[in-house]
Design a protein around this nucleic acid. Sequence first.
DNA 1: TCCACTTATGCTACAAGCTTACTTATGTCG
DNA 2: CGACATAAGTAAGCTTGTAGCATAAGTGGA
Lengths: 365, 365
Amino acid sequence: MTELRPGDASLLRKVNTQVTLRALRREGVTTLTRLGRVTGLSRQTVEAVLDELGERGYVRELPPDEGVMGRPARRFAFRADAGHVVGVEVGGDAVVAALADLDGEVIAWERAAVSGDAAAHERLEAAGRTALKCVDGAGLARRRIWAVAAGTPGIVDRTGRVSLSLTLPGWTGVDLAGLAGRWFGCTALAANDANLAALAEHWRGSARHVSDLVYVLLGHRAGAGILIGGRLHQGRRGAAGEIGTLRQVGWERAVRELVEGGSAAEVFAAALAGDRAAVRRVDRYAEQLAVGASALALAVDPDLLVLGGGHARAGDVLLDPLRRHLAELCVNAPEVAASTFGDEGVAMGAVRLALDHVEREMLGL
Amino acid sequence: MTELRPGDASLLRKVNTQVTLRALRREGVTTLTRLGRVTGLSRQTVEAVLDELGERGYVRELPPDEGVMGRPARRFAFRADAGHVVGVEVGGDAVVAALADLDGEVIAWERAAVSGDAAAHERLEAAGRTALKCVDGAGLARRRIWAVAAGTPGIVDRTGRVSLSLTLPGWTGVDLAGLAGRWFGCTALAANDANLAALAEHWRGSARHVSDLVYVLLGHRAGAGILIGGRLHQGRRGAAGEIGTLRQVGWERAVRELVEGGSAAEVFAAALAGDRAAVRRVDRYAEQLAVGASALALAVDPDLLVLGGGHARAGDVLLDPLRRHLAELCVNAPEVAASTFGDEGVAMGAVRLALDHVEREMLGL
DNA sequence: TCCACTTATGCTACAAGCTTACTTATGTCG
DNA sequence: CGACATAAGTAAGCTTGTAGCATAAGTGGA
């Protein structure tokens, strides 16, 4: 269970700092008195906390509002530009980097194509170059980056090493987090791409008001990420959700079969237009996906199943047959929704992961 | 995420009460000074906390030790007999009740046979009777029971209602927690049997030092329970782990096929003796189980897979082929262990669930 | 029997953090 | 320019915590 430490008075301050900071960020620009009301803390306490946060650079005082009754209130705001994070997707055929401030507002995107059979060092170099370009292009000093996170296909262990990659050449064994740390000389994290995309959906996507979530990433390959209690569940070796590798489930084969008759986009378009053969092909794909998806759904019993990745852009052409097949297989199938992010989900999730780390640090563990 | 409340000084006291209580229970009979050292709190604080706990009846002061150097130290002990809980398994063909004190030491067991096709009200009556007999037989006043928990096959929702039972007649829709609450007029909880057995293994069984765990219950029917981060994961509707119902997995059929040639115990015994046909039969059973087990393992990537229920008593005769088939199916299969509890696992888990509730209450939220 | 030694207790002083109540400052509005 | 509204500032007091030191209550040996 959770380790529990004895608390002295400073613990109180930590808790109340956390409470105040959250309220301030939720409310936006706010007055002292209002913060007191909202948090349930006394004005004095809020003031003391804000002073401290101001000294540390996280909070700024604004000039008082004019034209209102009574003595002008002191106004405060969270300094979202106090620090920044970078989230990177290191994918099979592209690298996507996002630069974001502490509010998670993305300031700049940067993309680069990478060959599917590029060697590991080429892929890494492309990732680093793209991340740096993203920051430099935004005119931000590199030392302003507090954390970096990277997402990539394959199994990534807790230290951020790729412990197994079946799709990218030479990728197994790469210490992705370790190498990403050198880009800006800051802490770096790495995780499986589907896991990060799940995080993004929970943060700002289709799964905002949900606590247990299964995310299925469909594209050149299929993978899954799991959130339980709003937190990433990675498993002992980071392999949680890798059910697609089970032979009986056969996601790999399903993807291959789908694109036998042309590109996936073409098949979906034809099905949408009413082409019988394409409809059957999509239905067959959905049926095969449903086997793995229902296994995940039955194992986890999530509040929501989100479909993301390239194929999810097909929308209901794919989702409706999938829902049908799921209902056949599951006792009570979960709701199914499409991802709200396009091909930016993984990078967004990486931003969220980096922010999680920064926010923990910000308050001293 | 977790709701975060502002803290005043009383929060500190709560935290330190928790810390002190845990240390006291871990150490057994202990002196004031020692508790201070162990917890990292000052002796004064520990004393104040212990005074309070003494008044509430949770802690007792013992006469000082004799024959040691120096001034005799005041000695304290947790009063495990301050309250009691009852854990009940309401199974297909039997009811098992356990009475335990606050340390989780079982004071009395009580069992009763129930017909597999008994009506719901008969089964409930048998359960109530058994629970009451267990307490009465131990000479304990019924009002000393602070909480009851019950485990049963089928899907049990968060309120403790059986929302789906495929094996017990009339069982679907029974408000098990609500009815169990009347036995002793105290709070009552209910959950799926495999979930509770998983809890028991993590508490005092094979999974003590593990945080993510999949428990597979094998007997007349097959079910699974999942622990993540040491906590029960029940899912949206309490159906997490119900992968056995997936047709492709076919646990129900596997169980049927195993016992075609005689009772399960006979088949396992024959296999152990070297009977070729029995060995093949067990291997086939293991192979079929492995499909579902590997799906769970790939979905959750647990630290450990525990096998329990009647068939797990077969031991390595069943476990070894299962390990073999799992290794074939999983990228990196988890370790597999047999349950340490016989047919008492579910009731033990129910005891743990009830204790969890009591311990939360003991400290005020 | 008595005295030195050991160890824990009891007491006092004080610091951190939070709250409440009251006074004062600084605007707007008629 | 005075009344009113609103929030800031100030001071006292409570709870909970820690630290240091004198004191109590045993053991053990001369």
